[in-house]
Amino acid sequence: MLDFSILVNYFDMFLDGFKVTIIASLIALVASFFIGAIIAVMRITSILPLRWFGTAYVEFFRNIPLVVIAFFFYVGTPALGLEFSGLTAGTIALAIYTSAFIAEAIRSGILSVPKGQMEAGRSSGLSYIQTMRMIILPQAIKIVIPPIGNQFINLVKNSSILALIAGTDLMYQADLISAKTYVVFDVYIFVALFYLVLTIPLSTGVGYLEKRLAKSY
């Protein structure tokens, strides 16, 4: 039987960590979406330097461990005169890491919109950017919602790396509680439940959005 007294006695700590996890995830989620969208557009433009940059960005950040990026911003950048708290460093790392995956999802979504849509937009006098914004991206988003939803769920789970750099998130607090109480099993079960409280509504929401968009036109 689970020892609920741990949950009750240390509820404030759990809650603090939970809040930090939510905030870090939310910020990283919004940031990674915007960075990802910009990188995706770079990857498909005909302007070569932008395209190279986009490709390098994706290949680099997708292929190194998240922890390495997090440590870079936590212990690496102070050498360059930039100091971040564990929470900030971790959130930046999460945003950058996730944005590489989101960029790829958006890129394949954009490429799946028929070529004739861009041609119709451009031949009516709209600029490339206008056509992207008003015609291509709104259609791509429909295709891209499920993979992006999965990335967001991964993001929430990945936010647990904050614990490694004193990010005061849920996982970090759990480590503290379990060190204090010598209870391991129960503490991490509760932590798992807290994560589920975030990820289950997220995946339900994505599923709902997917259905609604499918019906929209």
Binding site: P114, G116, Q117, E119, A120, G121, S123, S124, G125, L126, Q130, M134, I135, P138, Q139, K142, S216, Y217
Partner: peptide, 26 residues
């Protein structure tokens, strides 16, 4: 103006929005 074999209407926009998009934005 250009008219294509496969129409290339914007599927996410109504007929009216399809027609007004360029006049409004261009």
């Amino acid at each position: 103006g250009m008219v294509f074999q496969h129409f290339n209407l914007y599927p996410h926009k109504t007929v009216l929005e399809n027609i007004t998009l360029a006049p409004i934005n261009v």
